[in-house]
Simulated scan of single mutants.
Amino acid sequence: MIRHLVLFKLNEGVERDDPRVVAGVAAFRALPEQIEELRSWECAWNITDRPIAYDFAINSAVEDTGALQRYLEHPAHQAGVALWREFATWVIADYEF
Rank of each mutant, 00 (worst) to 15 (best):
M1N: 13
R3N: 08
R3V: 12
L5I: 13
L7H: 10
L10K: 09
E12K: 12
E15A: 14
R16T: 07
P19W: 07
V21S: 07
V22P: 05
A23M: 08
A26Q: 10
A26R: 09
A27M: 00
A27L: 03
F28C: 03
F28A: 02
A30N: 10
P32Y: 11
P32L: 11
E33N: 14
E33Q: 15
R39E: 14
W41P: 05
E42C: 02
C43P: 04
W45M: 08
T48W: 04
R50G: 12
P51N: 07
I52H: 12
Y54A: 10
D55V: 06
D55M: 05
A57W: 00
I58N: 02
I58P: 04
V62A: 04
V62Q: 04
E63F: 01
D64Q: 07
T65A: 13
T65H: 14
T65V: 06
T65L: 14
G66L: 06
Q69E: 15
Q69I: 02
L72V: 14
E73W: 05
H74L: 06
A79M: 00
G80T: 02
G80L: 00
G80S: 07
L83G: 00
R85K: 15
F87L: 06
T89C: 04
W90M: 03
Y95D: 02
E96G: 09
F97L: 13
F97C: 08
